[in-house]
């Protein structure tokens, strides 16, 4: 079948030999394909809305859920749609502290996304550097670095994070650090795999035969060609990091109670579930679910688009 598509593309390629003054960047091509996939488009729209809502949380939210002075314990555990004494409507109800859940979810989203993206980005940088170095150096360096990766990956992520947080204590920076430690190895493994393949390609030989410096070959020639799988892994890992953070917060060792993230909100409402006050856990849980599913939709579609076998 490949033969046919090749013949076809060569054929059409010969015909459309008009001179284009500028070329389309790979990023625009990928975005174009993403938008054409209805599932990915749905994911993209949802993630954009959630990110915007999180960024502008302080503008949108009727209440600052972290400002204890604004909370009224009298408004505790109000059902969705209930009104407070001051005449404010709690759209999604309140938690046991009298916190407006809608506001709390917006602020929680902000924390979750910040933690997820920041930890994924830092882990990506570290992992990519290690993976590239490993693939390019080869030999003992490669063997050593990959054994470190193996050891790292053989511990369950949640266990490593639990231990780290138990030692370091609570806080956004601490949880990002814990997530980076548990995640970098995935990136290292991924990029090493693709860099090993790329290193054997003729364009790298060509670059070496022109005596280009190693640094340049590594970062300008090999790295950009390894980005595709890395982007896919990064997307999926952001979702995973958000989930892990929620789990840790749920267990009560992630973020302080005064600054609840989505996981902590779920945890807070957990004890009232059986007494019928479902909303305290339910709405933050739904927000988390939507965010993660949407990110994974994008990731799935990216994996299809960036799959070299499908590249036309």
């Amino acid at each position: 079948m490949t033969d046919v598509s090749k013949t076809a593309s060569v054929h059409t390629g010969g015909k459309t030999d008009k001179s284009r003054s500028h070329s389309v960047s790979p990023f625009r091509i990928i975005m174009g394909k993403l938008v054409r996939d209805p599932l990915a488009l749905t994911g993209l729209v949802i993630v954009s809305i959630l990110v915007l809502a999180a960024v502008f949380a302080s503008v949108i939210a009727p209440q600052d859920p972290y400002d204890l002075a604004q909370l009224d314990i009298m408004d505790g555990r109000l059902a969705p749609g209930a009104e407070s004494f001051t005449g404010m409507t709690y759209l999604l109800g309140t938690d046991d502290q009298g916190r407006d859940l809608f506001s709390a979810i917006l602020y929680g989203l902000r924390t979750s996304i910040l933690v997820g993206v920041a930890s994924a980005a830092i882990a990506l940088l570290i992992g990519a550097a290690v993976g590239l170095l490993s693939a390019y150096a080869g030999g003992r360096t490669d063997a050593f670095l990959m054994r470190v990766v193996d050891i790292q990956l053989s511990f369950p992520a949640i266990l490593v994070a639990l231990i780290l947080l138990a030692v370091l204590g609570q806080g956004v920076d601490k949880i990002i650090l814990a997530l980076v430690v548990t995640q970098w190895a995935y990136y290292a493994r991924t990029i090493r795999g693709s860099a090993l393949v790329e290193r054997k390609r003729a364009y790298v030989d060509a670059a070496r035969s022109m005596a280009l410096p190693d640094r340049r070959i590594l970062f300008r020639h090999i790295l950009p060609n390894c980005l595709a799988p890395l982007i896919v892994v990064a997307t999926m890992r952001v979702a995973y990091a958000i989930m892990l953070e929620a789990t840790l917060s749920f267990l009560g060792i992630g973020l302080p109670v005064t600054e609840p993230s989505l996981g902590l909100l779920v945890s807070n409402g957990f004890e009232y579930m059986l007494s019928g006050d479902y909303w305290i856990s339910f709405f933050p849980g739904v927000a988390l679910l939507i965010l993660i599913v949407a990110i994974n939709l994008i990731g799935d579609s990216l994996r299809d688009i960036l799959n070299p076998r499908r590249e036309g």
Binding site: S23, P26, R201, A202, Y203, D205, A206, A207, R220, H221, P224, N225
Partner: peptide, 13 residues
């Protein structure tokens, strides 16, 4: 090299 599709880096103008 033999393969002109391989020996140019596709991401560089």
């Amino acid at each position: 090299f033999q393969d002109p599709f391989e020996s140019l880096n596709l991401r560089i103008r």
